[in-house]
Write a protein that binds this DNA or RNA. Structure first.
Lengths: 154, 154
DNA sequence: TTATGCTATGTTATATTATAACAGCTATAG
DNA sequence: CTATAGCTGTTATAATATAACATAGCATAA
């Protein structure tokens, strides 16, 4: 869940993947081979992956060869909240809590590149309230912190 | 200051520009014609502008013709905190408080495209604190809200 | 079964955003 | 003046992303 902390990542991947499967059934969506593999590739990594890196992986197992294919798969995953885009990096990460995640905050380590996703309900409330006071009705947020994780000495 | 609210934008531009001039003297930086004009172009607009839109403007007054030129000018302005990049849009905006702005929040209207910049010290504190608890030392933040401004009916 | 429509995939081509690398110019300090 | 540090100009190309259209798979209802 938090990339910076020791954890059983296999378990973490399995649980995200099975949550996604369940959500797809619920929503009557097709978790096709490309989509599924794309998610697996993202789950594999604790860093954000560029679209073309994902494409290379997909290509290496014969599932896609052209940019539109990976962008479609990523688009599907993002629309459904199964993955996120890190806007700072033009990179993509799997969502670690696909069934409950809204407006998360991403922490990106400037040294090792690893990314952790964390809900920040209090900060979100602050932001939405501040925006409301200016007459702005916020419907989505991008929150990305950069800095150093606990394993990378400053 | 807040794009969504009626205000005397000429005054607003003049004040940002003179703050930048002062800061450049203070910091012994050269506010060259390209840099100055780039800032003017950004100040002109309440929306984020793409680098190539800025370049077109610069070209139309004979100040630059090639991408590296505009990216250099934007790089300078951003480094100095005189402008910001909207990561969601790959667009650039002038900073409205160049002498005091840190980790601002941007509100981007999904309908009219206008952008407002706002300091959010409380939310920033929340975020940094939440990150610290996970052992992450945050040094910079990107906070961008999208939604509807008060002039755009939902 | 077969027609129908919807969703997903495959492919070509191209748009958009951004940077590397190097040559030449200019302001300024010594 | 002249050395130098920092800007500027230019070529070329990298990296990211999408439009548009053709094809295939699948669900379902006549």
């Amino acid at each position: 869940m938090v990339a910076f902390v020791q954890h059983d990542h296999k378990r973490c991947k399995r649980s995200a993947m099975s949550a996604v499967k369940a959500l797809c059934e619920e929503r009557q969506l097709r978790l096709t081979p490309v989509r599924r593999r794309t998610l697996e590739i993202l789950l594999q990594s604790h860093k954000g992956l560029g679209a073309y890196e994902v494409l290379a992986e997909l290509a290496s197992c014969g599932l896609a060869q052209k940019p539109p294919q990976v962008y479609r798969a990523l688009g599907f995953l993002i629309e459904q909240g199964f993955a996120h885009k890190l806007e700072q990096q033009n990179a993509y990460v799997a969502c670690c809590e696909p069934s409950s995640c809204i407006n998360p905050c991403f922490m990106v380590c400037a040294s090792c590149g690893r990314v952790a996703e964390q809900p920040v309900p209090r900060a979100n409330k602050q932001l939405v309230a501040a925006a409301n006071e200016l007459g702005f009705a916020a419907s989505a947020s991008v929150i990305e912190l950069s800095g150093l994780c606990n394993e990378c000495p400053g």
